[in-house]
């Protein structure tokens, strides 16, 4: 069996100290295989965003272990020195709003990541164009961000998350601003891309419309995760 794309054991995060300390995560366990799309659901304040930030190497957990594609990145302390490079090369992000850079055109929004990784501009742009074509926005490569519809912007942001072919993509409420049809389209795209690039995708969501589409779900409550089988309906 292939290495899990993400493996988390006993991950904890405590904010503050002493009497003011808050345990946002109290021993989270997760395992996601390459190509898998899982949902992460839970009420507000349950620790979803904290988990996402820990996984995204944006905040440091208090304890536990995290591994990407079999390689530990955190084991009661960071195991990598350059967290920016880790985020750039091995983790993709899709946000609630597309958060594209408004002063770059579509191609450069996507090409920026490979460029930051040191790829020459021409190669980075070619890679971006291919990814945009895979997401059916290949015809908008020269468009400015403001010229795109909401759905197109979200596709471009997915292209940006996937362009460096990271082992995991973290999607934070990616369908929140979209209607049902577009929300399901985004989930379908994420499933297709996960299969195509063998990327594990964690989708944090509240969206009742898309929850039935996940084959596997993680519920998070009071800082702990509980795995449940999803319905896995076609998006």
């Amino acid at each position: 069996m292939a290495q899990p794309a993400i493996e988390i054991n006993g991950l904890a995060k405590r904010y503050g100290e002493g009497d003011a300390a808050v345990d946002a995560l109290k021993g989270v366990d997760m395992m996601i295989q390459p190509g898998e799309v899982v949902g992460l659901i839970g009420p507000s304040g349950s620790g979803k965003s904290t988990l996402l930030k820990c996984l995204g190497a944006v905040i440091e957990p208090t304890s536990g272990r995290m591994a990407l594609a079999g390689k530990a990145i955190y084991d009661n302390g960071w195991k990598v020195t350059d967290l920016r490079a880790l985020r750039r090369d091995r983790i993709g992000f899709v946000f609630q709003a597309p958060y594209l850079i408004p002063f770059l055109n579509v191609t450069d929004n996507v090409a920026l990541l490979p460029m930051l990784a040191g790829l020459p501009n021409s190669q980075a742009r070619e890679q971006a164009r291919q990814m945009l074509a895979a997401l059916d926005v290949g015809h908008r490569t020269q468009a400015q961000v403001r010229q795109l519809s909401g759905g197109e912007q979200q596709r471009v942001s997915i292209a940006r998350a996937l362009v460096n072919e990271p082992p995991i993509v973290l999607a934070d409420e990616p369908t929140a601003p979209l209607d049902s049809e577009r929300a399901l389209t985004v989930i379908r795209i994420l499933n297709q891309m996960a299969q195509r690039f063998q990327t594990a995708i964690i989708v944090v969501t509240h969206d009742e419309k898309i929850i039935p589409t996940f084959k596997r779900l993680y519920h998070i409550r009071d800082g702990r995760t509980f795995e449940a089988a999803g319905e896995g309906r076609a998006a």
Partner: peptide, 13 residues
């Protein structure tokens, strides 16, 4: 600020 946060998140130095 938001663009800068995104840039930092995606690995800009």
């Amino acid at each position: 600020v938001r663009e800068i946060a995104v840039l930092k998140l995606i690995g800009a130095r």
